[in-house]
Amino acid sequence: SLQWQANDLPVAGFTAWLHDRYLDTQQPLSMTGTDIIVFDVNTDQASAAANRFFIVFRENRPLPVTFVSTSSIRQRDESVLVKWVVASEQSITKYEVEKSSDGRDFTGIGQVRATGSPLEQAYTFTDSRAGKERIFYRVRAVEMDGRGQYSNITSVQALQMESAISVYPNPAQGKRVNLQTNLPEGQYRVRFISASGQVVYQSDIRVLSGRQAQVINLPGHMAAGTYQLQVQISGRSLETVPVFVQ
Score class of each variant (00 low, 15 high):
A122F: 07
R104E: 06
R129I: 04
E120I: 08
G116T: 12
R104G: 00
D105P: 00
F125S: 05
G116Y: 11
R140K: 15
R138W: 01
T124Q: 15
R138V: 02
I92Y: 03
E98H: 15
T93V: 15
Y95D: 03
E96Q: 02
P118S: 07
S101G: 15
G110P: 02
T115C: 04
R138N: 01
T124E: 15
A141C: 11
D127T: 10
E96V: 11
G116C: 10
E120F: 06
G116H: 09
F106E: 00
E120Q: 11
D105F: 04
T124N: 15
K94L: 05
R129Q: 09
E96T: 06
R140H: 13
S117L: 07
A130C: 10
I92Q: 03
V142Y: 09
G103V: 05
R140F: 14
G131F: 06
G103Q: 02
F125A: 05
I109V: 08
F106N: 02
D102F: 07
L119V: 02
E120A: 04
A141M: 05
F136D: 08
S101N: 14
V112I: 08
A130T: 09
Y95V: 02
Q111K: 13
G131M: 06
A114T: 03
F106Y: 11
E98K: 15
T124L: 10
G108T: 11
Q111D: 08
L119K: 03
R138S: 01
R140N: 12
A130M: 13
G108I: 09
E120P: 11
